[in-house]
Design a protein around this nucleic acid. Structure first.
Length: 619
DNA sequence: CTCGGAAAGC
DNA sequence: GCTTTCCGAG
């Protein structure tokens, strides 16, 4: 809920909790940054500024000092700290706002997604402070995925569970725990002192800063989007997350399901400060009606099937009726579902049934991007050509997820996708859209090179392929029948999907590297009926079992992908590949479907929370 | 300033 | 795994 005192930016509380950085017992830098960011005392040192998630280190030395204090590394300096920050680029936790000194931007999508909506079906609203978390450690992993990247799935943000409680704790004081006690307060004070000392200008600056909202607001906001009633939240809304201006009818509420969804880039989100907003927003809850949820879940389920995900997933949704995988109709929806919210989903379904491809007409806010793996500097330099190529291909796809044919063509023509495709789930997606800052634009132009932006969503891609395959297998149809995808992008679901997708590693022979990994034949046309559905599922299932173990593989694959990408560069071909997104992994893990029962979830959550709360650190 | 490779630490 | 430390390069 809200910490009245907390000026925090709009990130969810969980984002601030140390616990959110699981993997490490020690606080992680990004977390620390967030911590500073949320405290007014440090606004003169570091503060949100510019686009959503963007912050400026006003006093690098001070930040470094604080960080050093926290980590008991007196020798810390901005150079070192910034190096650590740069390591986040590849992880996509952070990226640099080009052209702006000391300015970085969080990829909250990633972070947020993790906590994403643990929807409380029972009550119909999401718990503000403590979303139900999938049981502590269990994360559901979608198959091949889990990008180990950034937040190791379960680890980093694993406990989305507690939002506020922890946050509060943190707020109380933990900027620095070095040598117990000493610092927390002292540091804080120091920081404050610093402010006073000499940052006159900052004050003015402050005014410019986005208003800080209670973390809670975030969640509320999403809901707003979700709610049918509040579908259109002003982008300006307090929420840090840009609300996507959903073009679609009815506003694609869908995306709202997850924050990620809402992350759609907004042309410009200023965090607008309207203090007033907060209260109104408060009213809106993250609520779904069961129907919506159902739709959502069904879609999800369907998707899972389509993605040949493990059936286990369904276990989570006992109440849900699993759609028949092979039914084309459902499939479409499923696909659709990527970007659409539950309600919309149903909506779209109908529409689709009727009008099929016309969906495109409603440009959805989401789009895909091909996202090559972050290139190293060297690579980037040499790979520019590649980027260009990829961009072109991606653009076509992204612009219209029209049909499999298109995709297929591109992929086929191009050959196996070697490029690492990343899901857009992250904020990155937002970035892409946002033209706000230079960096973003830059990236856009370049067809996103890396982390920043967009990420093509392999997911969508994969999904598509798979879908097509499916259709074909079922005799449904032509390659064209593929459902037009609107915009996969930010959906959390996308992430979900994408996650499953396996990185295309490339054997050039495979037309659909992504999909077929296992069950489906690589060749497009051929896929067919050769493999009975049952068999396929069976295989999936078994594979699924392996999956858990495979999680780690992702990273390796990632690397592999990169390597592939390089090769690709050499070849000069740009493609879409499948890749897995890091974020996706994380997201998936946390996003798991809510436990069948809320109560159970709640209890688990509580447990987890309690557990987590115990873990604070110190040096 | 910024970027990342490399190596070392925890 | 996540930095911390160094460092050359842009």
């Amino acid at each position: 809920m809200k910490t009245s005192a907390d000026p925090g930016f709009a990130f969810p509380d969980w984002a601030y909790k140390p616990e959110s950085s699981p993997g490490s017992r020690q606080i992680q830098l990004w977390h620390f940054i967030l911590e500073l960011l949320r405290k007014e005392e440090y606004h003169d040192v570091i503060a949100w500024q510019g686009d959503y998630g963007e912050f400026v280190i006003k006093d690098p030395d001070e930040v470094a000092r604080l960080w050093g204090a926290r980590k008991c590394k007196p020798q810390m300096n901005y150079d070192k700290l910034s190096r650590a920050l740069r390591y986040y680029y590849n992880k996509r936790i952070l990226h640099k706002t080009k052209g702006k000194r000391f300015t970085y931007k969080f990829n909250f999508n990633k972070l947020v997604l993790v906590n994403y909506p643990f929807i409380d079906m029972g009550s119909g609203r999401v718990p503000q402070s403590a979303p139900p978390v999938p049981t502590g450690g269990s994360h559901f992993r979608f198959p091949p995925s889990t990008p180990s990247d950034v937040l190791s799935s379960s680890e980093e943000l694993r406990s989305p569970g507690m939002f506020s409680s922890v946050a509060r704790r943190m707020a109380r004081g933990s900027v620095s725990d070095c040598s117990d006690g000493t610092s927390t307060n002292s540091e804080l004070e120091e920081a404050v002192g610093a402010d006073e000392r000499g940052m006159g200008p900052d004050r003015a600056y402050r005014g410019l800063l986005p208003p800080r909202l209670p973390h809670d607001s975030l969640f509320r906001i999403y809901p707003a989007g979700l709610g049918r009633h509040g579908p259109r939240v002003h982008p300006d809304s307090l929420s840090p997350f840009p609300v996507s201006p959903l073009p679609g009818p009815g506003g694609l509420l869908g995306p709202n399901l997850s924050p990620a969804l809402s992350m759609t880039p907004t042309p410009h989100m200023s965090y607008t400060p309207s203090p007033s907003m907060s209260s109104p927003m408060l009213g809106s809850h993250f609520s779904f009606n069961q129907e919506d949820m159902k739709h959502y879940l069904q879609a999800h389920t369907q998707s899972v099937y389509n993605y040949h995900l493990s059936p286990r997933a369904f276990l989570h949704y006992p109440n849900i009726i699993i759609p028949q995988p092979h039914r084309p109709t459902l499939e479409k929806p499923a696909a659709h579902h990527l970007h659409c919210p539950p309600l919309p989903l149903s909506h779209s379904l109908n529409q689709q049934a009727a009008g099929g491809e016309e969906r495109e007409q409603h440009p959805s806010p989401f789009k895909f991007k091909l996202q090559p793996p972050p290139l190293g500097r060297k690579q980037r330099d040499s790979g520019s050509s590649l980027a260009a190529a990829s961009s072109s291909s991606s653009s076509s796809q992204s612009s219209s997820f029209t049909g499999s044919s298109q995709i297929i063509n591109s992929s086929v023509a191009a050959g196996p996708p070697k490029i690492k495709v990343e899901p857009i789930s992250d904020i990155e997606s937002e970035e892409e859209v946002e033209v706000t800052d230079i960096s973003d634009e830059d990236e856009l132009n370049h067809s996103d090179e890396e982390e920043q932006g967009g990420i093509f969503t392999p997911t969508a891609h994969h999904y598509h392929h798979q879908l097509n395959s499916y259709l074909r297998a079922n005799g449904t149809g032509s390659s064209h029948s593929a459902p037009p995808h609107s915009h996969p992008e930010e959906d959390p679901d996308d992430d979900v999907f994408k996650t499953p997708a396996t990185p295309p590693i490339g054997s050039s022979s495979q037309a659909f590297p992504l999909i077929n990994l296992k069950s489906e034949p690589g060749q497009a046309a051929p896929i067919s009926p050769c493999i009975p559905l049952k068999l396929r599922f069976k295989r999936r299932w078994s594979e699924d079992q392996k999956m858990e173990a495979e999680g780690e593989r992702d990273e390796a694959e990632d690397k592999k992908v990169r390597a592939d990408r390089e090769e690709e560069k050499k070849v000069g071909e740009a493609e879409n590949g499948g890749g897995r997104g890091e974020a996706g992994g994380v997201i998936l893990g946390l996003m798991l479907p809510p436990p069948p029962t809320q109560r159970r979830a709640s209890s688990e959550l509580q447990r987890a929370t309690a557990q987590l709360s115990l873990e604070n650190t110190g040096c």
